[in-house]
């Protein structure tokens, strides 16, 4: 464990807590894409298949349970909780996210480190996570007003993978044979997808204005 990875995990945890806070306290999911949340459930479900078979550390297992539990409960809230579901704008959140999964599955079957069930599922979860934010970013372009909590949620979610990139660089230089091109490239693509969001988020913060992505 290094500080970059710890910072990444804490930033990821913060993003999930901000979203849960928003949904649980103000009972609103306005501006939040259910499609992205459903993709994240699949990302974690396919990433943590080994949660009961391989034990790395208490921290690792605890964080896996937190990410699994929070992503499932966010989807549950947005789908089945009456008050929250009412604030979900279904008309705008129309990204065909199931079509995102197909290329990820195909790519995982083609490009992976080992052709085993676990490894292919794990690779699939990496590819899917890289593009999981797309429905949310599309929804953001459509809904003009972005409330602070949603903006913070996306900012933290994008930032965590950026810390992971620093972690991969650190591990590359400190651990012999630590080379994982698949993880690195999908992590880089994932972070780059946030580039324009980060730009407008920074501008809104600098000019102290409401965050607005151009149409």
């Amino acid at each position: 464990m290094n500080i970059f990875r710890l910072a990444g995990d804490m930033t990821h945890l913060a993003s999930v807590l901000v979203l849960l806070l928003k949904i649980h306290t103000i009972k609103s999911c306005a501006g939040v894409s259910l499609k992205t949340q459903e993709l994240y459930v699949i990302v974690f479900a396919t990433r943590y298949l080994d949660i009961f078979t391989s034990f790395v550390s208490i921290y690792n297992s605890l964080m896996k349970l937190i990410f699994l539990g929070s992503s499932f409960s966010i989807v549950w809230y947005m789908r089945y909780h009456k008050a929250v579901h009412r604030t979900y704008d279904r008309e705008q959140d129309t990204f065909r996210h199931w079509f995102l999964m197909l290329p990820c599955i195909l790519l995982a079957l083609l490009i992976h480190e080992k052709f085993t069930f676990f490894e292919v599922m794990w690779t699939f979860s990496l590819y899917l996570e890289a593009v999981a934010i797309l429905p949310q970013l599309v929804l953001l372009q459509r809904t003009r007003n972005i409330d602070n909590l949603t903006g913070q949620y996306i900012f933290l979610l994008g930032g965590y993978r950026g810390f992971y990139i620093l972690n991969w660089i650190y591990r590359y230089f400190t651990e012999p044979h630590y080379v994982h091109w698949i993880t690195w490239i999908s992590g880089l693509v994932q972070t780059l997808l946030y580039a324009d969001f980060f730009y407008y988020y920074f501008l809104s913060w600098k000019n102290n204005k409401k965050l607005q992505l151009p149409a």
Binding site: H12, D50, N60, M63, F67, K114, Y164, H177
Partner: peptide
Amino acid sequence: VAPDDVKDEL
């Protein structure tokens, strides 16, 4: 140390 193939990252 976790052997190489064990995923130690989240």
